[in-house]
């Protein structure tokens, strides 16, 4: 498969009064054409910052992409693009949908106007043609009465419909890459499932790639092709969905998997929860960032950061437990291939 996006040594820092908050620390990954990559991790692990960096949307925050970072889209470095080229890419080649559709849509513009705005920013079409296309898009995202809905304002739509409208806006120009930043977090479970079905269908039909940013491993398992687990601004484990769910190797991934309701060994037991909080990103963290919360922490973990151990072409994890001299540790009961139902 061809490589669509390649992120190399991405580091992002936020400048605060307390000092430099290093939100993303030397992250490298790639996205192939027509694949879905999930970025998984808890709040503040850098997954959203990573995804926003891809479109250089950190502008209004204090976030600064550090020198030495590269983001290649079809071979072209996004971080080196001028404003004009960047506007061409945004919304037409790479699109983004956000978590909260209530606040992500302009309350004083009709849905139709917000869709056509994307179309007319990137293509020279008449207003009428753009509206026709917008109607088509609303039909594509399965909004009933698309013609009437064009004239509606966001507050007149339900949460699920608003998120569908967001998708319609994002897909207006047939992007090659869609970044979905927690697209279903603000929705209830039934709507979540419907929306994910829709996205999956559209992805296959339109042949685009998706970067799914989420903290919910439950939706990852049947939506993504590959998974990257992030922690404290780093990727701690990467692999295909099978590898991550059948054969996870990083204790943090284990903790995430054990925290999914319904995957506990027997359903009467208490849901697992990981103690502690993520480390302060103001710190340099010259050791394994997970060491303080890790059940398997060894002396070395607090002295040196682990390098990524390559387990297969697609699978890798950064953990000292994978070092040949480390003691062998079994995957906790209830997760991994053997016990998976």
């Amino acid at each position: 498969m061809s490589e669509l996006l390649k992120v190399e040594n991405l580091s992002v820092s936020f400048l605060s009064y307390a000092g430099e908050v290093r939100a993303v620390r030397d992250v490298s990954f790639h996205v192939d054409a027509r694949e879905t990559l999930a970025l998984v991790g808890e709040s503040g692990c850098g997954k959203t910052v990573t995804s926003k960096s891809i479109m250089r949307l950190l502008g209004r925050t204090t976030g600064v992409i550090q020198p030495g970072s590269h983001i290649y889209y079809k071979g072209e470095d996004i971080l080196a693009m001028d404003k004009k080229r960047l506007s061409q890419i945004r919304g037409s080649e790479i699109s983004m949908i956000f978590q909260d559709s209530m606040t992500s849509l302009n309350p004083t513009m009709t849905v139709g106007a917000q869709i056509t705005e994307n179309i007319r920013t990137h293509a020279r079409v008449s207003r009428a043609d753009a509206l026709r296309r917008a109607e088509e898009l609303l039909r594509m995202v399965e909004i009933p009465n698309p013609h009437e809905r064009l004239r509606n304002y966001p507050h007149q739509l339900s949460g699920g419909m608003r998120q569908r409208a967001m998708i319609a806006i994002a897909l207006a120009m047939d992007p090659s890459l869609l970044i979905a930043d927690e697209p279903t977090t603000a929705l209830d479970v039934t709507i979540q499932a419907q929306l994910l079905d829709l996205l999956r269908g559209l992805k296959d039909r339109l042949g685009m790639s998706i970067i799914l940013v989420t903290h919910d491993l439950g939706i990852v398992s049947d939506f993504a092709d590959r998974v990257q687990v992030m922690y404290a601004g780093r990727i701690v484990e990467r692999g295909t969905v099978e590898e991550i769910f059948q054969n996870p190797r990083h204790p943090y991934t284990w903790a995430l998997l054990r925290s999914i309701p319904g995957m506990a060994p027997d359903r009467k037991s208490r849901l697992y929860s990981l103690h502690g909080t993520p480390p302060d990103l103001l710190l340099p963290l010259e050791h394994c960032p997970f060491a303080a919360r890790c059940e398997y922490c060894m002396p070395i973990c607090k002295k040196q950061p682990p390098a990524e151990t390559v387990l297969s072409d697609t699978h890798g994890a950064a953990c000292w437990l994978l070092h040949p001299n480390a003691p062998r540790v079994e995957i906790p009961r209830g997760i991994g291939g053997v016990n998976r139902d």
């Binding site: 992500s104 920013t121 994002a170």
Partner: peptide, 27 residues
């Protein structure tokens, strides 16, 4: 300016001028 829909507009590739006139001004 800090509203999410301004970010949406930026993600659409809308020019800074149009973001000010169409999205920021009215709201």
């Amino acid at each position: 300016v800090n509203q999410d829909y301004i970010l949406t507009a930026e993600a659409k590739g809308v020019s800074q001028f149009r973001i000010v006139t169409r999205h920021i001004f009215r709201n």
